[in-house]
Amino acid sequence: MKVLFGLFVIIGLALGATYYFGGFATMDPETQQKELLANVNLGMDWKDVVDYQAPRKVSEFAMKNQGGMKVLGKNVATEFKKDDLNDRVTNNKIGYGFVFTYKYSGSHITDVEFDTKGKVVNISHPTTMKDLLNISR
């Protein structure tokens, strides 16, 4: 019983240390999102956006058929690799543009959309569950 109690104490201390020293105690999704919006502007080059904050995922736009109509939509997000994207933008292999998605929490998501040349053309906030349920902070 004492061994089990000691084990729980050690696990608790390890989790506490991870929380405080791992940066989770100061993590504020709303502030991070506001800082991104303050530093990313229309017309910026994708490399400048990455220098400010690299995304985890990138999606390319593609034409899709929906009910017999062609609609521009996002492809499945893939892991962001700077060299791969640089090659695709430089060699004009991006058909309709691409999107960096920054997800700070379930209710703090920002899409930064780029044209085929790699310039920011739109910054938007996808609908989240918080929006659908009309939950205020």
Rank of each mutant, 00 (worst) to 15 (best):
Y19E: 09
N39P: 10
Y20M: 09
L36W: 11
K74Y: 07
G67Q: 10
A54T: 09
E35S: 12
L37P: 05
T26I: 14
F80R: 00
D87T: 07
E60W: 00
A17C: 09
N65Y: 12
I11C: 06
F24V: 02
T26W: 08
V76G: 05
P55N: 06
V76F: 09
Y19H: 12
D45V: 04
G12Y: 13
G67V: 04
G73I: 01
L85M: 11
I11G: 05
M69A: 12
F24N: 12
D48V: 01
L42D: 07
A14H: 04
D83M: 01
P55I: 08
L13E: 05
A62G: 11
T26L: 11
Y19W: 14
W46V: 01
S59Y: 00
Y52G: 04
D48P: 02
T78Y: 11
F80T: 00
V71E: 11
D87V: 03
M27D: 08
G23M: 08
D28W: 04
A54Y: 04
E30H: 12
Y52A: 04
K34Y: 09
E30T: 13
V49F: 02
N41E: 08
G22W: 10
L36D: 12
K64C: 02
G16H: 06
G67K: 06
K74C: 05
Q32E: 15
G12R: 06
M63N: 06
V50E: 01
N86H: 03
V71I: 15
I10C: 11
V76Y: 09
L36Q: 12
T18C: 06
E60N: 13
D84R: 03
M69Y: 15
N86W: 02
Y20F: 14
Q32D: 13
D87R: 11
A14P: 04
P55W: 07
V50R: 00
A62F: 11
I10W: 07
D45R: 03
Y19N: 13
T31E: 15
F21V: 09
L85T: 03
N39A: 12
Q53F: 02
K57Q: 14
N86C: 00
D83S: 04
K82A: 06
V71D: 07
F61M: 08
D48S: 11
G67H: 10
L15I: 07
I10D: 05
A77E: 13
A77H: 03
E35W: 12
I10A: 15
A62E: 13
V71H: 06
F21P: 01
P29L: 07
K74S: 11
T26S: 14
D28S: 12
K82V: 02
D48H: 01
Q33M: 08
G67A: 06
I10F: 15
M63V: 04
D83Y: 00
V40K: 01
T18W: 14
E30L: 13
L85V: 10
G67L: 08
T18N: 11
Q53S: 13
K70F: 10
V49L: 00
L72M: 13
V40T: 03
D51I: 00
L42P: 07
D87Q: 05
Y52D: 03
L15D: 07
G16P: 12
P29I: 05
K47D: 02
L36P: 15
A25R: 08
M27P: 01
E79K: 14
K81F: 01
I11V: 15
A25G: 02
R56W: 11
E35Y: 08
D28C: 08
M27Q: 08
N75E: 10
